[in-house]
């Protein structure tokens, strides 16, 4: 058992109202359906300070990324021009086990969302 770096809360942090507010602001109040966007992330973070994630959504103009369990859920927004494939990867900070959420804005003005749970563990007791 590792001892020093206990996560802020052993249980998954509750999604806060900020998340829904950020999504509503991004969508300008338009409805956001489930799906149409992919989030890729490791099942368990190797290091909560640098978690690789990828997002992709065919036909998207922009993708908003949120970390639902961070004190501030904002992570990044990617905008895709005509030459771009609407997909991007980056590395992010996660304060504990939580959902990483992606919301895609499509050219026709519709929106889609998806989430992926990333576990942040104390680690250290493998075999």
């Amino acid at each position: 058992a590792a001892l020093a770096a206990l996560p802020a809360g052993a249980l998954r942090a509750a999604e806060h109202a900020d998340v829904e507010a950020a999504i509503a602001a991004f969508a300008g109040g338009a409805p956001v359906k489930e799906g149409g966007v992919e989030v890729e992330a490791p099942e368990i973070a190797e290091n909560g300070n640098t978690v690789p994630i990828s997002v992709a959504a065919e036909g998207a103009e922009a993708i908003l990324i949120l970390a639902a369990g961070n004190p501030n859920p904002d992570v990044a927004t990617f905008h895709f021009g005509k030459l771009a494939v609407p997909a991007a990867s980056t590395r992010i900070r996660l304060a504990g086990t939580q959902d990483v959420i992606a919301v895609a804005k499509f050219a026709d003005g519709s929106f889609g969302r998806a989430a992926r749970t990333v576990k942040v563990t104390i680690g250290g007791c493998g075999g």
């Binding site: 300070n49 640098t50 978690v51 970390a67 961070n70 501030n72 859920p73 904002d74 992570v75 990044a76 927004t77 990617f78 905008h79 895709f80 021009g81 030459l83 771009a84 991007a88 980056t90 590395r91 992010i92 900070r93 996660l94």
Partner: peptide, 12 residues
């Protein structure tokens, strides 16, 4: 412009 990104402190 090909790609742009607005980044927040949660980016590593």
């Amino acid at each position: 412009e090909v790609v742009s990104a607005d980044l927040h402190p949660a980016v590593s």
